[in-house]
């Protein structure tokens, strides 16, 4: 997939644990894991909004586009 989810990087920068983020955003650890591993097919604006609020960042800090041939 050409869209890369950089949640791990942002979590490390904010020194926040996955469990804490999941609680703040209101999603399960399993769903957060799907998001972090890039298995997710789509992300709701409401989820993105909650993640950006919890991590105090922009959507571009979490999501990155890389063409398939560069992967």
């Amino acid at each position: 997939m050409a869209i890369i989810v950089n949640l791990d990087v942002m979590l490390a920068r904010r020194k926040m644990q996955s469990k804490e983020l999941a609680e703040k955003v209101g999603i399960t650890m399993a769903n957060l894991s799907i998001l972090k591993t890039g298995k997710a097919k789509a992300i709701r604006f409401s989820t993105l909004n909650a993640i950006c609020t919890a991590l105090d960042c922009q959507p571009a800090d979490i999501l990155e586009f890389r063409p398939d041939d560069e992967l």
């Binding site: 957060l32 997710a40 097919k41 789509a42």
Partner: peptide, 8 residues
């Protein structure tokens, strides 16, 4: 359904 499950 699979897509719905993988929409976070």
């Amino acid at each position: 359904e699979k897509e719905q499950e993988l929409t976070i």
